[in-house]
Design a protein around this nucleic acid. Structure first.
Length: 488
RNA sequence: GGCUCCUUGGUCAAGUGGUUAAGACACCGCCCUUUCACGGCGGCUACAGGGGUUCGAAUCCCCUAGGAGUCACCA
């Protein structure tokens, strides 16, 4: 039975790199009929952000990645929050002390800083803990521990040889032991460090495959020393390349890069984000690029993972989002778009359903919608140069002429029969008798109605949305504008 | 600096000794068209560099360069 885990620390919301790790971890488990587990790594109490744990639950739920075991859903391997497992770690660390794979250390931070400074003066950048406390006799160490003196427990890394492990993606990774430090396993506050808690919990929770960021790659060889000392079997490690904002910087909250939550708030749809994220650092090996979660589960394979970092390219996300939006049912679109329409059109009595039809395939990200429809609320200031369009064969003079024709044609329509079809018939009816091409009528009218070079929908749709009165008002404004210009 | 990892077009990427080196986004043309968008067609741009191995290297080996990670009582 395959068991994977996503193990974030509660320091904030779910960033996109974390989301991708969670996704891959979920996909891998589900692909193989296994379990996906959530574990909260909160051993650094100082960094913990209140409410962050709930944020993680919520994000995972919003992302559609349900976990089979976790703090809020239970499971047979709990507790799933590390601080609640506190008592587990020290006894295990003491076993390592007994076997010589670890030892208690009483050096204070000040002493350490002092020795470090001296060592750095000799050989810059070479400092490692000097195994000072390894020399203590068992009896003395025992005595000092029992006297209540603060201590930590350090891993006793051999002075020679190499430590290594097999990464499912990066292959054989090894490091010379003499470059490895005797890291702290149990901190003075009694809580385990990340590395120790990982080893212990992954084993105790029966985790078979660990997916995590490459930043842990270089500390992983040391894990195997621990597993060997315990006599435990190590899980398979799969380190994941980072998601970058550009060639040399990781996507990060600090730099204002969006979180999953932020993207949703901006009007990206969940499935588009998931689809896009899945393809950042992983490829199905064929040319498919649209995947539902279920299809991702089916297609996921470690062979498709990329070792090189991937740059988060918003343009492609926008494209995916646009595709997802275009493909959703009109009803769904209308429901999602309504609050955005309301931002500028609330109370106008606008036919949202009709507007939705126009906007449906023209929406890239919802937060751009208000700007796209704002001209419906109020006619923007515009330049009469807009009336000139080479391909439509129009210019100011001709525009004035057609607006003067369009005005009575529109006015002839009944207020309650001012439909898109009726407007279209009325305007098209002007073409033949006056020897005008369609564009020569439609272009000037649309400009007068919208004041914009490009709009969702054409002249007739906009006229309908605006209604008779407002349409006439805008046509009149256009006529006045053109006349004034003609006189000047 | 030590150790570790990475390197195909602007971006995501396929490719595991023999291909005209896929595809997508973006960009640029053209077509369609009452604007825009959609759609259709076409175009541009890549194996970091240098040595090997081989009949033959994007694919294997070495070196160089560039980038990243790590070297905490943070994860």
């Amino acid at each position: 039975m395959i068991r994977t885990r996503f193990a974030p620390s509660p320091t904030g919301y779910l960033h996109l790199g974390g989301l991708r790790t969670a996704l891959y971890t979920y996909l891998f488990a589900k692909k193989h009929g296994g379990k996906f587990i959530l574990r909260i790594e909160d051993t650094d109490q100082e960094r913990e952000v209140p409410g962050a744990v709930e944020l993680i639950y919520q994000s995972l739920r919003q992302a559609g990645l349900p976990y089979d075991e976790g703090p809020d859903v239970g499971g047979d391997f709990g507790p799933y929050i590390q601080t609640q497992r506190k008592e587990l770690y020290l006894p295990l660390a003491m076993k390592l002390v007994d076997s010589g794979a670890a030892y208690p250390c009483f050096c204070t931070k000040e002493e350490l800083a002092d020795r470090r400074e001296k060592a750095e003066a000799q050989a810059p950048g070479q400092w490692k803990y000097d195994k000072h406390c390894l020399a203590l006799s068992k009896e003395e160490a025992q005595r000092r521990m029992q006297s209540g003196e603060p201590y930590v427990i350090r891993q006793n890394v051999p002075l020679s040889g190499t430590a290594s492990f097999e990464d499912a993606l990066y292959g054989h990774v090894e490091a010379p032991c003499d470059t490895l430090d005797d890291n702290v396993l149990i901190k003075a506050d009694g809580l385990p460090t990340y590395n120790f808690a990982n080893v212990v919990d992954d084993h105790l929770m029966g985790i078979t495959h660990v997916m995590r960021g490459v930043e842990y790659l270089s500390s992983t060889p040391k894990y195997n020393l621990l597993y060997a000392a315990f006599g435990w079997e190590a899980p398979t490690y799969i380190h994941l390349s980072p998601v970058m904002k550009d060639a040399s910087r990781k996507l990060s909250k600090r730099y204002g890069d969006p979180s999953f939550e932020d993207l949703l708030a901006q009007g990206y749809v969940r499935d588009a984000v998931i689809n896009f994220i899945a393809l950042l650092g992983w490829s199905p090996g064929d040319e498919r690029e649209f995947f539902t979660l279920a299809e991702l589960v089916d297609a996921f394979d470690l062979k498709g993972l990329s070792k090189a970092p991937a740059i988060f390219n918003t343009e492609k996300l926008v494209w995916f989002n646009h595709e997802y939006i275009s493909r959703m049912a009109l009803e769904d679109y209308l429901a999602l778009a309504t609050p955005w329409f309301d931002q500028v059109l609330a109370g106008k009595g606008m036919d949202y359903r009709f507007l939705a039809q126009l906007m449906h395939t023209r929406t890239e990200v919802f937060d751009r919608v208000p700007d796209q429809v704002r001209f419906l609320a109020e006619l923007p200031e515009y330049d009469t140069a807009l009336y000139t369009h080479q391909k439509m064969k129009t210019n100011s003079d001709l525009a004035l002429q057609t607006l003067l024709l369009a005005r009575p044609a529109l006015d002839a329509l009944p207020e309650d029969g001012f439909t898109e079809e009726a407007v279209k018939a009325a305007l098209m009816g002007l073409c033949e008798p006056h020897q005008l091409k369609t564009g020569q009528v439609m272009w000037p009218v649309r400009i007068a109605l919208s004041g914009q070079a490009s709009t969702p929908g054409g002249a007739t749709e906009i006229a309908y949305l605006l209604g008779k009165r407002e349409s006439l008002r805008r046509v009149d404004a256009g006529i006045a504008k053109l006349k004034q210009q003609g006189e000047a």
